[in-house]
Amino acid sequence: MSIAKVLLVDDEKPFVETMMKRLKKRDVDIVAAYDGQEAIKCLAGDDNIEVVILDIKMPVMDGMTALKEIKRKYPLVEVIMLTGHATVETGIDGMKLGAFDYLMKPCDMDQLITKVAAAAQRKREHEQKIMEARIQTITLRRP
């Protein structure tokens, strides 16, 4: 049983590859994308992705634009901003757009795992609440 299904989005291939190996070793089901557009495609093709670890500075589509797009199309998917130039401002900006949290590169693996777990937990809670609400609605509709 994995902690969560995570999409890691970063244009630095070596970083993505190593990070994937390390996260897999810690029971994280991980897939990767190398820019924002590719990340949107991945999300479209995989409903099980719970958490997106998103770099900010990327080619084709940057992290902030991708965040807006993800939150518009998949509001339940939690996003953790992970960036080389994460500052208080970029972190705040990201969180204002709906990101779960932000981390600065290079990050502490334990901290990342904790945040990923917390983000997945929140998504599941949200889904649970929505599910409950739907069941309640269906139950109420029955004569």
Binding site: E12, T18, K105
Partner: peptide, 17 residues
């Protein structure tokens, strides 16, 4: 600083691996 930060992140991740 920005350009160095990414390779440093990779190095640390590699060390972690």
């Amino acid at each position: 600083a920005h350009e160095i930060n990414n390779p440093v992140a990779i190095m640390i991740e590699e060390a972690g691996w």
